[in-house]
Amino acid sequence: MIARARSRLFAHLWLILGLIVVAFPIYYVFVASTHSLQTILRPPLPLLPGDQFLANYSEALFGGVGRIGGVGVGTLLLNSTIVALGIAIGKIIISLMSAYAIVFFRFPLRMVFFWIIFITLMLPVEVRILPTYKVMVDLNLIDTYAGLIVPLIASATATLLFRQFFMTIPNELLEAARIDGAGPWRFFKDILLPLSATNIAALFVILFIYGWTQYLWPLLMTNSNSMNTIVIALRKMISFADADTEWHLVMVTCILAIAPPILVVVLMQRWFVKGLVESEK
């Protein structure tokens, strides 16, 4: 048993080392966000938070970041929130609808439609950048929320996940509902939706993060700074060659850009792990 205790001690040491590697960069940016610009520019930066927390955060939130990117951090957070929620909710709704049609109805070309949806897995944005951009220009969708959201809500993964789950619903449930006179909408709303609640919650967490961390798509779809998501805006603020970058404000923006998805992961950890492990099946 002594050997066991020692191996556990080593395990703790490894994990602490891992925590330092994994959590340190995030912690350190938070530290940087609480120091003055002068302190940040004179390495090494202290390991503990400084006393500029209130000053930096209020400066960033009330106009400071506006000086760098031309747009307040509030607008950027709002844009990211709209895009992330739009993508998550939109994907869940249209995937529920298609999975419902494919599992609970029989109609000509059913499997053809299934494969059409499935094959989109093989066509990520990266393999069709220019033509997709052209479609967006033709449809006047550049610099609109619809342009940032709609093309990303077609999802083979979510449809497959719901299809998989719907197929485990016992036939008796549907038969009983039909005997009681329930139509498709009634069955969906009163039986299927409540049963799918955990799956929807799990998927929501994953999709919210997916939406929040989008990069290439918003980069292509936005020209005007006021439509930027916070991730893209942050990229535009940073210039390592430029001595005038207000690093303390950039650091605050960085923390604000990663805090919402991290909170979602930490607070909804159980759904998150479930969603991640299941949506990859």
Binding site: G18, I209, R235, C254, P261
Partner: peptide
């Protein structure tokens, strides 16, 4: 150990560049 999942790849890059940038 699971939070970095929520960090956008671009921001992950910027974090490391901040830690390792040559000037400060």
């Amino acid at each position: 150990l699971i939070w970095p999942y929520a960090v956008a790849p671009a921001i992950a890059g910027m974090l490391w560049l901040f830690l390792f940038n040559p000037s400060f």
